[in-house]
């Protein structure tokens, strides 16, 4: 009764020609563990299992994966949240190339992040103290700076699946808006000019999967709407 059925996506490029699902059984002893705990128990028995993890408290973003169909962080997702009919299915984040088992190649994700120039741009002479910002201006960054780049959002977005090389994706666009909204950043025009084409921003169809899966409760759809408003104000 307390034996949990776990089905995990396995793929080892050195030995397998194709991925397959491997079934495991885990005795949770009735405890409501985190998915990461279960993975660790499994790895103790099957050392070939590969997955990323680090902080185990939901701040590093390493262990993003698809759990019973929904993206999330394994370390802060408890079994009671995801297990259905005593079954847990773990698959890698959708849409990104699988390196091995639950480890995906984050290259395209980081590429889009770098593309939006995720750093403050201000050529004015540096003041003697820090560049000042009022509390109201600082409040605008709430809900934007907390992103841990776990990729749960972008890999849940169908538009990102179909065009990961052209559509920046929810995570990248959220960070883009984080800098567009920052009063200390002076490169607003250049940032907006880079995003004008039909793909980078406008592939967002408002599907809102990103909002549904973000483990930090952020809202990329709203940020993308705000970028659109800025583009509209700038260009009409």
């Amino acid at each position: 009764m307390s034996m949990l059925q776990v089905s995990i996506y396995r793929y080892n490029p050195e030995t397998d020609s194709a991925p397959y699902m491997q079934e495991y059984q885990v005795d949770t002893q009735g405890r409501d563990l985190m998915v990461l705990n279960v993975l660790e128990m499994l790895k103790a028995e099957d050392t070939t299992l590969a997955y990323r993890r680090s902080c185990r408290e939901g701040v590093c973003g390493s262990d993003g994966m698809n759990m019973n169909g929904k993206n999330g962080l394994a370390c802060i997702t408890s079994l009671s949240e995801v297990v259905k009919d005593n079954k847990l299915t773990l698959r890698p984040l959708p849409g990104l190339p699988v390196v091995r088992d639950l480890v995906v190649d984050m290259g395209l994700f980081y590429q889009q992040y770098e593309r939006i120039q995720p750093y403050l741009q201000n050529d004015e002479p540096a003041p003697a103290i820090e560049r000042l910002q009022s509390p109201e201006e600082r409040d605008k960054l709430d809900g934007l700076y907390e992103c841990i780049l776990c990729a749960c959002c972008s890999t849940s977005c169908p538009s990102f699946w179909w065009n990961p090389d052209k559509f920046v994706g929810p995570a990248g666009l959220l960070q883009s808006y984080r800098f567009l909204a920052d009063s200390r950043d002076k490169a607003t025009r250049e940032r907006l000019a880079e995003l004008e084409d039909p793909f980078s921003v406008f592939r967002c169809r408002g599907i809102m999967n990103c909002v549904a899966v973000c483990p930090k409760g952020l809202n990329p759809t709203r940020a993308i709407g705000k970028i659109r408003e800025m583009l509209l104000a700038n260009a009409t």
């Binding site: 698959r91 890698p92 699988v98 390196v99 408002g206």
Partner: peptide, 27 residues
């Protein structure tokens, strides 16, 4: 096997295994 962007690596895009919330279905 779903193959991804310029890479020989497989991709997890089996839509039957992914959960779609209601806004995604209406979309």
């Amino acid at each position: 096997v779903y193959r991804a962007v310029n890479s020989k690596r497989p991709v997890n895009l089996d839509l039957t295994t992914i959960h779609f919330p209601l806004p995604a279905l209406t979309s």
